[in-house]
Amino acid sequence: MISCDKVQSICTKAQYREASLYEKGLHFIHTLYCKACIEFSRKNNQLSGLLDRTAASTLSEEEKKAMKQRLGQAR
């Protein structure tokens, strides 16, 4: 039987779409009966949503490049 630690690691890999089909199957079966892993997966999914949201409040690469240029000129 697969451990909760292993299932939760698979859940993390799945957040980046890097879990294999086999791993996803293991995760699915385990979360049919394990409440702790269901809860972990729910929060892990939420965290991914939050991380996507923060991407909206970052400077673009162009803006950073422009900042570096102006900083370089000021030196």
Binding site: Q8, S9, T12, K13, K43, N44, Q46, L47, L50
Partner: peptide
């Protein structure tokens, strides 16, 4: 993957109920 998993677990704990329901 071990590092990312630990970091995510720590983040979930740290962000707590203010951001995660």
């Amino acid at each position: 993957w071990v590092i990312i998993h630990r970091a995510r677990t720590a983040l979930m704990e740290c962000l707590g109920s203010q951001w995660l329901t």
